[in-house]
């Protein structure tokens, strides 16, 4: 139970950071990327401070033998830069540039009660399920 309360509180802190910083505000996101138009560079500070805190914090945390609620740290194991990584990231950017929401921005934005973030998240879930079905189909083809 304490484990779930902890996860919810961390999610809340994450969501507060996203909402306060403007990462859940599509107008701000699109202006950040509009360098030759209405450029708003303030999100550089947001990304910079999030990264700095995480970089320093991880140095201390990952030296410990294990996290508080688990037996081990779960870190991504893939190392290779492959086609799905680059192509997928490129497609993600096109979607981010069209709608102004990334996954971490859209989820907290649902709580605003506006229809836009809800429509976005439903479409995004469709994309995730479709992509995982495609990945499974590719994997079957590779085996056959």
């Amino acid at each position: 139970m304490l484990r779930l309360i902890s996860a919810a509180v961390i999610g809340l802190v994450f969501g507060l950071g996203i909402v306060i910083s403007g990462m859940a505000n599509p107008a701000k996101i699109l202006n950040f990327f509009d360098v030759f138009g209405s450029w708003d560079p303030s999100l550089l500070l947001v990304m910079g401070s999030a990264l700095t805190v995480t970089f320093i914090g991880y140095r201390f945390v990952l030296k410990r033998p294990a996290p508080a609620f688990d037996r081990a740290f779960h870190l991504p194991t893939k190392r290779d830069v492959d086609v799905p990584l680059v192509a997928g990231s490129a497609v993600f950017g096109i979607g981010w540039g069209i709608a102004g929401f990334c996954p971490g921005g859209a989820i907290p934005a649902i709580g605003s009660g506006h229809p836009g973030p809800v429509i976005f998240v439903i479409a995004m879930i469709g994309g995730i399920i479709g992509a995982n079905a495609l990945k499974a189909a590719f994997a079957r083809k590779a085996l056959a």
Partner: peptide, 16 residues
């Protein structure tokens, strides 16, 4: 919003 959401969902899944 729908096209953007679909592309984001596809992209982040393949991009990990």
């Amino acid at each position: 919003i729908i096209v953007g959401g679909l592309l984001v969902g596809l992209g982040v899944t393949f991009g990990g």
